[in-house]
Amino acid sequence: SDPSEDRAPESARVGNIPSSTSALKVPQLKVAESAQGPAAAHTTDTAGYNAMEESVSREKPELTASTERVNKRMSMVVSGLTPEEFMLVYKFARKHHITLTNLITEETTHVVMKTDAEFVCERTLKYFLGIAGGKWVVSYFWVTQSIKERKMLNEHDFEVRGDVVNGRNHQGPKRARESQDRKIFRGLEICCYGPFTNMPTDQLEWMVQLCGASVVKELSSFTLGTGVHPIVVVQPDAWTEDNGFHAIGQMCEAPVVTREWVLDSVALYQCQELDTYLIPQIPHSHY
């Protein structure tokens, strides 16, 4: 159930021909089969995070001529859309010479989310990475209204306002976009420790780096000194050995919190207090 199309920051360009055919990675995205229709094609874990990302398996898109002007500035990904909605975005992107990729990268400028009429969405990996990267996180209605009015409308009017977990109007995407000089995790050293489900560890690490944190791979690698705040992030329900995560405190002095601390902080683009996310640790033995 991992969102495989989000696994690594590679891009698939639509609308320009790469210098070599080997560089072309066409979105071959799968549809989750469901008797209840597209709305039930998501699996949500206890964290309220949509693990099964969206989309559609299609034939290789038709490439435009390399001489045609390509908008190098805009690059989009989509999240939560049905196959039909994805194809509408594809046509919109081609019309406006926008790069459409299946994986979010540093070059991505827009994340197009499936939302309700009030621009509230589910939480997906692309949603988190879009906010963390200060990108435009907009409703699919931006595409449909632009098509209806036959011009590209202003993104401000379609920015995602909230999500089904953290609140319907928290304005996290807007706050992140306007606060890239004040990253929420700066001054923190974060170790993403142990197993994680539904989200590859490297993507979680990239997320906290985008928010200004330094990533530490091992508990023994924390910088011990003033001005640096170490934090260990774990996902308790992913551990097979009972309560192993309670013993992390015996290996390092850092506070240990659940992954929800990261996800909530990123969604709201406000660093949350650790208290409600802390995992009790077995104290050091004193002999």
Score class of each variant (00 low, 15 high):
S1L: 06
S1P: 10
D2W: 02
S4D: 10
E5V: 05
D6V: 06
A8S: 06
S11I: 07
S11G: 03
A12H: 15
A12K: 11
I17Y: 10
P18S: 07
P18L: 04
P18C: 13
S22W: 06
K25A: 09
V26A: 03
P27C: 09
L29S: 15
A32V: 12
E33K: 09
A35Y: 04
A35V: 03
Q36Y: 15
G37V: 07
A40N: 13
A40W: 15
A41L: 12
T44Q: 15
D45N: 15
T46P: 06
Y49G: 12
Y49E: 07
E53R: 09
E53S: 11
E54M: 11
E54I: 03
V56P: 01
S57V: 10
S57D: 08
R58I: 06
R58G: 04
T64L: 14
K72T: 14
M74H: 10
S79Y: 03
S79P: 01
L81M: 06
T82H: 06
E84R: 08
E84I: 14
H97W: 06
T99I: 09
E107W: 09
T108C: 06
D116H: 00
A117H: 14
V120Y: 02
E122R: 03
K126H: 00
G130A: 12
A132I: 01
G134L: 05
W136S: 14
V137W: 00
S139I: 00
Y140L: 06
I147F: 12
I147Y: 15
M152G: 01
M152V: 08
L153T: 07
N154L: 11
E155P: 10
D157V: 11
D157M: 03
F158R: 00
R161V: 15
R161G: 04
D163M: 00
V165T: 11
N166Y: 02
N166C: 15
N169P: 02
H170F: 00
H170I: 04
S179W: 04
S179R: 05
Q180P: 11
D181R: 12
R182V: 07
R182A: 03
R182S: 09
K183E: 00
F185A: 00
F185P: 00
R186G: 13
G187F: 13
L188H: 03
C191G: 09
Y193P: 09
Y193R: 15
G194S: 07
F196W: 13
M199E: 03
P200T: 14
M207V: 12
A213S: 09
S220G: 05
S220R: 13
T223S: 13
G225R: 06
H229M: 14
H229K: 09
P230R: 15
P230L: 14
V232P: 01
V232R: 03
V234T: 09
Q235R: 02
W239R: 10
T240H: 07
H246R: 13
H246S: 12
I248W: 13
E253K: 05
P255G: 00
V256M: 10
V256K: 02
T258D: 06
R259L: 02
E260C: 11
V262H: 00
Y269L: 15
Y269M: 09
Q270M: 15
L274W: 12
Y277W: 02
Y277T: 00
I282P: 15
P283R: 09
P283A: 11
S285K: 14
